[in-house]
Design a protein around this nucleic acid. Structure first.
Lengths: 194, 194, 194, 194
DNA sequence: TATGAATGAGACTTCATTCAT
DNA sequence: CATGAATGAAGTCTCATTCAT
């Protein structure tokens, strides 16, 4: 809807905070409105319904997440560096925004199937970015070209997601960034041409 | 509670079916009772509350899942074979039981944080089994001992989980078992001592 | 639904009272439940939704209304007496039940188009009863057979309905029954064969 | 209020259209404003509130309705002709304006009791016009003077109203004007002096 | 005059759980 | 042990109206 109005972002940011603090199922529209400093009804001038807040939240935040990773990756010249950048950026983005990490890793997964399908759509560009890097690595003879691209993508994304989720569930009490290099090596070795 | 009575299992099996068919949020206690062929109130003679059905379901089914993997692994003599067996058994167990796959990979994740923490407890023995195999591989000098055990476990579990979830989300339409060997090689290479 | 249970009728009777006292738009489900002496949720064991209460109310009460008129008319031997009986019964039924008169003449007409279409269905047997009497009168050469049956039915029903509505709007402060004979004569003269 | 301004009539005409097309309960102020080509707030410069739009609509349109019937009746010299003119004009006015017919016969009846009482006030001159004609008929010895004026008025208005409502509910698919003569005869006979 | 973004009260319905039988 | 009728708390969304510009 009217995405350029400041209230649109106010509401999305309020939703992130409220969901992170209260959990998905205790995040009533009225709570989000209060945190955003608007009336309940105002929410519905900017969002079709409650689910639309969550979808928009994920789209906006994931959009930023993905494009800042893409921007950073463009400055790297080979697949190995690009993969490291992807891992480091993935971790750093979520480390920088504790609330967002809780919301994307834990709370939003409690949503219903329809919302999760939309979430998958939003993630598609990110998975394609992973595919591009792996393909580039294969073209550079860094990675084994006989491997199944989909499996590799699932390994990389599955590992990143699982490590972040564990970190969030452990109350983010260790330094996720420090794991990046080791994960990177695991991937590079696993994918290496023999 | 009275776990040895036949109705206990009737109700759990009914819950798996109802959740797989209707989704987590459309699985009312009354629907489960009907499918199990008992009255609504009878549920509460065997389970403390609705959440207890789900926790018990996960405990029972995951218990079987884990012990049959453990049993099979005991017949293998080295870490490499054990890891392959773990992957193959993980996939075959869920391939054999479509409904259970849907419930564990998609529907139960919509539950609230507390239930998910209990689910994590149930998974602990499985994660420890992975740790054991990896440790054994390190002792055999098959795997690089300098790697962080937790990270490896997260990579292995994260990858298995992500591949199964993708397969379920794609309506289980390809043969998951065929991917096992390639995944296995990715792990072996990734973890190999250099 | 479970129409034979006493609560079904309790709720319908409560609805008549609540609507008559508060008006259609101030008759919340919770008010009806309270008057019926049941919990809000109990309403939904007997009725699909709020509209279903109103439809059922009209069906039940109109059903009684129509069949008691039919029963009385059966005891009369000619169209002239039958028409008088119809008028007198129409008035006496509503005179006897002040609340019902308010609900059917004023409040239920504020409902939406769908509900009004269902109301029309319920009224059909009554309109057919009028048609039968008029047809009988034509067969007896009491009424002019060249008249349009539909127009006559609309004149009779329209007049009865308008007189009752006026009486209700005037707070039922005059004796409606006393008008029956004069209305009857108007009809008999209007319809008479020349 | 400021009744002579063009926007006053714009808004009323928009209200008729919007209500005829969407039904009473789907006719929000914002929809009427949009159809009228003004801002929501502008409505409140010309009308006290939403109800005031509807009352004014009825007053304006009914005012025209009644005065054109009065004008036509003035050209007739006796009660019998006047009554026929009233019936024919009643039908022709509503036949000419389909939207208005829907609004007055169906949609406005869904309004609350207070609005309907105001509507009754607006109708008063029309009912008095009927009374005048009937009284004139009695003075001419055309009608039976012993009849109750109120009952006759209710019969005439009730019949006209019921016939129009039925015609509207049947999607105005037959020619209402053709019924006028027969209705007229029914009245004349019914009221005739014996 | 005219605008239109913002307000906020209010109600229907679901469903986990209980308890008298 | 088993039943199932009854309970009642709780949240999303609409829309008439206002008021700063």
């Amino acid at each position: 809807m009217k995405k350029n109005r400041p209230k649109y972002n106010q509401i999305i940011d309020a939703a992130v905070e409220v969901i992170a603090e209260n959990g998905y199922h205790s995040s009533q529209v009225s709570k989000i409105a209060k945190k955003a400093g608007v009336a309940d009804g105002t929410i519905y001038l900017y969002f079709k319904n409650k689910e639309d807040i969550l979808v928009s939240l994920f789209q906006e935040k994931m959009g930023e997440f993905i494009s800042s990773i893409e921007d950073e990756i463009k400055t790297k010249s080979n697949a190995k560096q690009k993969l490291l950048t992807l891992i480091e950026m993935h971790y750093s983005q979520l480390t920088k925004n504790h609330h967002l990490a809780i919301v994307t890793q834990l709370e939003l997964r409690q949503s219903n199937k329809e919302l999760r399908l939309m979430i998958n759509d939003v993630l598609k560009p990110y998975l394609e970015l992973i595919d591009q890097i792996v393909q580039e690595g294969m073209d550079e003879n860094l990675f084994d070209s006989s491997l199944d691209l989909r499996i590799i993508r699932q390994m990389i994304f599955g590992t990143l997601d699982e490590t972040v989720t564990n970190w969030v569930m452990n109350d983010q009490k260790y330094d996720l960034m420090k794991k990046a290099k080791e994960i990177h090596e695991l991937f590079i070795n696993g994918l290496a041409q023999k």
